[in-house]
Simulated scan of single mutants.
Amino acid sequence: MSKVLSTLRYSAEHEWIDAASPARIGISQIAADALGDVVYVDMPEVGAEVTSGEPCGEVESTKSVSEIFSPVTGTVVEVNQEPVDNPGILNEDPYGAGWLFTVEVTEEGPLLSAEEYASANGGDVE
Score class of each variant (00 low, 15 high):
Gly47Cys: 01
Gly47Gln: 12
Ala48Leu: 00
Ala48Lys: 14
Ala48Arg: 05
Glu49Gly: 05
Glu49Leu: 00
Thr51His: 12
Thr51Gly: 08
Ser52Met: 03
Ser52Phe: 05
Gly53Met: 05
Glu54Gly: 01
Glu54Phe: 00
Pro55Lys: 05
Pro55Gly: 07
Cys56Glu: 09
Cys56Met: 13
Gly57Tyr: 10
Glu58Lys: 13
Val59Gln: 01
Val59Glu: 01
Val59Pro: 03
Glu60Tyr: 05
Thr62Phe: 07
Lys63Leu: 01
Lys63Tyr: 04
Ser64Glu: 08
Val65Leu: 13
Ser66Cys: 05
Ser66Ile: 13
Glu67Thr: 06
Glu67Arg: 07
Ile68Thr: 13
Ile68Lys: 02
Ile68Gly: 09
Phe69Ser: 03
Phe69Met: 11
Phe69Asn: 10
Ser70Lys: 10
Pro71Ile: 09
Val72Asn: 03
Thr73Asp: 03
Val76Pro: 14
Val76Ile: 09
Val77Thr: 15
Val77Phe: 00
Val77Ser: 14
Glu78Gln: 10
Asn80Trp: 00
Asn80Tyr: 00
Gln81Ile: 11
Glu82Gly: 02
Pro83Leu: 02
Pro83Glu: 00
Pro83Ser: 02
Val84Ile: 15
Val84Ser: 10
Val84Tyr: 03
Val84Lys: 12
Val84Ala: 14
Val84Thr: 07
Asp85Tyr: 04
Asn86Trp: 00
Asn86Cys: 03
Pro87Trp: 04
Pro87Ile: 04
Pro87Val: 03
Pro87Ser: 07
Gly88His: 10
Gly88Phe: 04
Ile89Tyr: 03
Ile89Cys: 06
Leu90Met: 08
Glu92Ala: 15
Asp93Phe: 11
Asp93Arg: 12
Asp93His: 09
Pro94Gln: 07
Tyr95Cys: 08
Tyr95Gly: 07
Gly96Ala: 11
Ala97Gly: 08
Gly98His: 02
Phe101Glu: 10
Phe101Ile: 06
Thr102Trp: 00
Glu104Ala: 15
Glu104Ser: 15
Glu104Met: 02
Thr106Met: 03
Thr106Gln: 09
Thr106Phe: 00
Thr106His: 01
Glu107Val: 05
Glu107Lys: 15
Glu108Pro: 00
Glu108Phe: 06
Pro110Glu: 15
Leu111His: 03
Leu111Phe: 08
Leu111Trp: 07
Leu112Gln: 15
Glu115Lys: 12
Glu115Asp: 15
Glu115Cys: 01
Glu116Phe: 05
Glu116Gly: 01
Tyr117Gln: 09
Tyr117Lys: 13
Ala118Gln: 12
Ser119Ile: 02
Ser119Cys: 01
Ala120Arg: 15
Asn121Ile: 02
Asn121Ser: 14
Asn121Asp: 06
Gly122Cys: 10
Gly122Asp: 08
Gly123His: 07
Gly123Val: 13
Gly123Ser: 13
Asp124Lys: 10
Val125Asn: 12
